[in-house]
Design a protein around this nucleic acid. Structure first.
Lengths: 122, 122
DNA sequence: TTGATATTTGAACAAACATTCAAATATATT
DNA sequence: AATATATTTGAATGTTTGTTCAAATATCAA
């Protein structure tokens, strides 16, 4: 755990000042990890589709599976990941489980990313 | 290529209307792929650190390596991915190659994600 | 031209990942 | 109780990914 603070100088440093301030401005490891985990969750087409679909309205698992054109099992595995990262929440109604978004920010993040990718004619 | 439009009904559909509108509201496959590729790039702690460091000022490869505490080679591989996704640009100055951010939106996306992850006390 | 330095590249490898399949839960219906 | 349906779970599998190492480029300096 305390290894985090050990700094090994492996390479030539060209500009000590810039390196020092860059290191200081970098968020803590835990925040970097939370951030990159959040992006990683959105970094898969299946999960992204699920999130975007749920941004409109809640859906049950088998309807989500139909929307993303995958097996219920595959979707359920992905929903577990989305649940773990607190991106979606669910409510049970008899046999059915209805999922919906758990976070307002995620929609904004996706919208911002859409503006970004639309600027390229790839 | 044209397989994209084929729809196979693998599972019980609970609510046809919701599934239909969810499918219609979903962005095209190419946009979903561009979006998830962008998030995937940010979904790795090393690359995220590089992007955040470059948000402050341009850095050469060996300084980036020191900042993220990795080998120059590992960093160069990641810079190639960031270059391919047009997230960073570079300029050569003699032996040195200086990298900087190529996109204004990315900083905003990261800031929004920071607001998101800071709301949890994980 | 020779040696030194900064960066890139390709192969290799272990770790992480997405999906499938089969089996297990959980709830509702008869 | 027995059956059917909706969902979850665990193991297995092929693929992708991040880093390392060694070698290749590229530029500078002597």
């Amino acid at each position: 755990m305390s290894k985090e603070t050990i700094e090994v100088c492996r390479e030539t440093i060209i500009n000590h000042e810039k390196v020092k301030s860059a290191r200081q401005n970098l968020p803590a490891k835990s925040e970097i990890d939370n951030l990159s985990d959040t992006f990683k969750i959105l970094g898969d087409p299946t999960r992204l589709k699920i999130v975007i679909a749920l941004a409109w309205e809640e859906l049950c698992v088998c309807d989500i599976a139909t929307v993303v054109n995958l097996s219920v099992s595959a979707v359920s595995h992905q929903l577990r990941l989305l649940r773990n990262m607190r991106l979606v929440k669910f409510r049970k109604e008899g046999k059915m489980v209805y999922y919906s978004l758990d976070d307002e920010h995620i929609e904004n993040i996706i919208q911002l990313a859409q503006i970004h990718v639309r600027e390229f004619s790839r």
